[in-house]
């Protein structure tokens, strides 16, 4: 084989000079973005407005053959809302307090269970399975029992919410505590860290994103628990007012309760989300 000559042939760039690697294109990209932003907010807003308009004009009533006393008009609901605003506000805060207290209690217990299960994995995981099955238990079945135990005051609903929020927290927190990077665990071992230190410096921090996921799930679950608990034996709260209004055929007031419950639910969720942002800035899910 004759291979003395050069085997590699250079190629000269023809025409365009190197170094023009960047071209300004800022203006166009920016404008496109603004338009997109407008579509993201405007379109759902438009859809919502259209929905209410059709409702107000009784389009749904015609399609499903409903009377206005069955499905009240948005204006009637608005009127009920403003007429009873003081009452609604006090009942909303009552229900929200039940939900929040129950959620705090349930989440704390759930977190504790998760810690025990993570510390003694072989027996803990089995116990966790039992707690997880609580997730599938219909809360309505708990309501009469909790009323027997705690009477018709706040306590009964707090207990219901506690039970329903416990499972989600236990499962998620346990996942966060046990799904630790094995190398990080090795590092802790190399420091001769004991079980307590591993928990303090590694497992708990690692579980925080999962804990907030559970808290977000639990905001909705706790509102549902509190409202459903009030349906049956109660003399106050949104759930009580809601089921009572339906019973006495005051449908607009019932709908007003739903509006308040939805607003409270969203508010509760946003508070937890804000806490999450403040607490786990370091997590990838929080980066833009």
């Amino acid at each position: 084989m004759d291979m003395d000559g050069p085997l590699v042939t250079s190629i000269q760039p023809n025409g365009a000079a190197a170094g023009q690697g960047t071209v300004a294109g800022q203006g166009i990209a920016k404008k496109r973005l603004d338009f997109k932003e407008a579509g993201r907010i405007g379109l759902p807003l438009l859809g919502g407005v259209l929905f209410f308009l059709l409702w107000q004009l009784q389009a749904f009533h015609r399609i499903f053959d409903l009377k206005t006393y069955q499905l009240p008009l948005p204006t009637a609901i608005g009127a009920a809302l403003s007429d009873n605003f003081g009452l609604l506000l006090s009942y909303t805060s009552y229900t929200l307090a039940e939900a929040a207290l129950g959620m705090l209690l349930g989440s704390a217990i759930g977190f504790l269970i998760a810690m025990i299960a993570a510390a003694w994995p072989q027996w803990g995981a089995g116990g966790l399975m039992l707690v997880a099955s609580l997730n599938a238990v219909p809360i309505v079945a708990l309501a009469p029992i909790m009323n027997l135990w705690f009477g018709d005051e706040m306590g009964a609903r707090i207990a219901i919410v506690t039970v329903t929020t416990m499972a989600a927290m236990a499962i998620n927190a346990h996942k966060g505590m046990s799904m630790v990077d094995p190398l990080a665990l090795d590092l802790m071992h190399s420091y001769a860290a004991g079980k307590r230190h591993v928990f303090r410096y590694l497992r708990i921090a690692n579980s925080l994103p999962y804990v907030f996921t559970a808290l977000k799930i639990n905001t909705t679950a706790s509102m549902i628990g509190a409202i459903v608990g009030e349906f049956f034996v109660s003399s106050r709260g949104l759930g009580y007012l809601l089921s009572n209004s339906v019973k006495v055929a005051k449908m607009p007031l019932g709908w007003a309760c739903i509006v308040m419950a939805a607003l409270a639910g969203v508010l509760f969720y946003l508070i937890v989300e804000w806490l999450e942002k403040a607490f786990i800035k370091w997590h990838p899910s929080q980066r833009a």
Binding site: P13, N14, Q20, G21, T22, A24, Q26
Partner: peptide, 19 residues
């Protein structure tokens, strides 16, 4: 034949391939 590729980006466009 003289294929060029430019990616738009936030600050300035990047020339990924030149001719």
């Amino acid at each position: 034949d003289r294929v060029s590729m430019q990616y738009p980006s936030a600050h300035s466009d990047v020339l990924a391939l030149q001719e």
